[in-house]
Simulated scan of single mutants.
Amino acid sequence: MAIAEVSTPLQLYIVDTANFMKGEITVSFRNEGNEPVRIPDEINDETADYFFLTVLRTERGDVRILNREIGTMTFQRPLNYRELAPGREYSVTIPVCLDEVDLEDWKQCSCELETRYYNQQGKDCFLGMLRATAKLALQ
């Protein structure tokens, strides 16, 4: 079954992979619409794996999932939100788990890093999925 990506004014970009080998990347949310957009302001080292699914692929077809955990998270309190005005962006650093990945064999080929942001929680905020990719050369 295919999942259609819906056009949305909120966009996601991978903006910095310089610390990838140290276990983190920086992503940015950008409001490219004409109205304010709210997102949960709850993304940190402990919760990022519940909002993001990050995958590394080689041109040879090798694939590694770079999350510590994958699942859903339920907040037992009201969420904190961040509102992005039109044209504004918000960057956050998220962890990538390299513990079980031997990247030595991957250093001789180009890779694509993909992260997907999922949010199904919150009131009057963006609900859905956003996708971003970046080319990556491992050193």
Rank of each mutant, 00 (worst) to 15 (best):
residue 77 R to K: 12
residue 17 T to Q: 08
residue 134 A to E: 14
residue 70 I to Q: 12
residue 59 E to G: 03
residue 122 G to H: 05
residue 7 S to Y: 10
residue 10 L to N: 05
residue 60 R to H: 03
residue 96 V to N: 03
residue 137 A to C: 05
residue 32 E to K: 15
residue 43 I to M: 02
residue 60 R to D: 13
residue 92 V to Q: 01
residue 87 G to H: 08
residue 81 Y to L: 02
residue 5 E to Y: 06
residue 6 V to D: 07
residue 38 R to S: 15
residue 82 R to H: 07
residue 101 V to T: 14
residue 2 A to S: 13
residue 101 V to R: 04
residue 124 D to R: 03
residue 132 A to T: 10
residue 52 F to E: 02
residue 79 L to R: 03
residue 67 N to P: 07
residue 7 S to H: 11
residue 73 M to W: 11
residue 13 Y to R: 13
residue 103 L to H: 02
residue 88 R to S: 01
residue 122 G to Y: 06
residue 51 F to K: 03
residue 135 K to P: 00
residue 18 A to F: 06
residue 107 K to G: 07
residue 4 A to P: 09
residue 135 K to N: 13
residue 48 A to V: 12
residue 91 S to I: 04
residue 120 Q to T: 10
residue 83 E to Q: 11
residue 12 L to F: 01
residue 16 D to A: 15
residue 79 L to H: 00
residue 72 T to H: 10
residue 8 T to R: 13
residue 137 A to H: 12
residue 93 T to P: 00
residue 34 N to V: 05
residue 47 T to I: 14
residue 107 K to F: 11
residue 45 D to N: 08
residue 119 N to D: 07
residue 14 I to F: 11
residue 7 S to I: 04
residue 81 Y to T: 02
residue 77 R to H: 09
residue 118 Y to S: 09
residue 133 T to Q: 15
residue 114 E to N: 05
residue 67 N to E: 00
residue 102 D to Y: 02
residue 50 Y to W: 14
residue 35 E to I: 03
residue 75 F to A: 14
residue 60 R to T: 15
residue 45 D to E: 12
residue 110 S to K: 09
residue 28 S to D: 04
residue 127 L to F: 06
residue 64 R to N: 15
residue 84 L to I: 03
residue 48 A to C: 07
residue 81 Y to P: 00
residue 70 I to H: 08
residue 1 M to I: 10
residue 80 N to I: 02
residue 138 L to Y: 12
residue 8 T to N: 15
residue 49 D to Y: 04
residue 128 G to Y: 07
residue 60 R to E: 14
residue 99 D to Y: 01
residue 135 K to T: 09
residue 110 S to E: 13
residue 55 V to A: 12
residue 74 T to P: 00
residue 32 E to H: 04
residue 95 P to I: 09
residue 31 N to Y: 08
residue 54 T to N: 01
residue 115 T to F: 02
residue 130 L to W: 00
residue 47 T to V: 12
residue 104 E to N: 14
residue 76 Q to A: 10
residue 46 E to Q: 09
residue 133 T to W: 08
residue 39 I to C: 02
residue 71 G to F: 09
residue 117 Y to R: 13
residue 112 E to N: 08
residue 70 I to F: 07
residue 115 T to I: 04
residue 64 R to W: 05
residue 7 S to M: 08
residue 49 D to S: 05
residue 84 L to H: 10
residue 15 V to L: 01
residue 35 E to W: 00
residue 17 T to K: 06
residue 123 K to V: 10
residue 49 D to M: 08
residue 41 D to H: 05
residue 38 R to W: 05
residue 24 E to M: 06
residue 52 F to G: 11
residue 43 I to H: 02
residue 23 G to P: 04
residue 5 E to K: 14
residue 10 L to W: 00
residue 45 D to C: 03
residue 96 V to I: 07
residue 12 L to T: 09
residue 116 R to E: 08
residue 133 T to E: 15
residue 129 M to Q: 13
residue 120 Q to M: 06
residue 55 V to M: 10
residue 55 V to D: 03
residue 56 L to A: 14
residue 58 T to D: 15
residue 61 G to E: 14
residue 123 K to W: 01
residue 97 C to R: 10
residue 69 E to V: 15
residue 128 G to D: 07
residue 48 A to M: 08
residue 94 I to F: 02
residue 24 E to F: 03
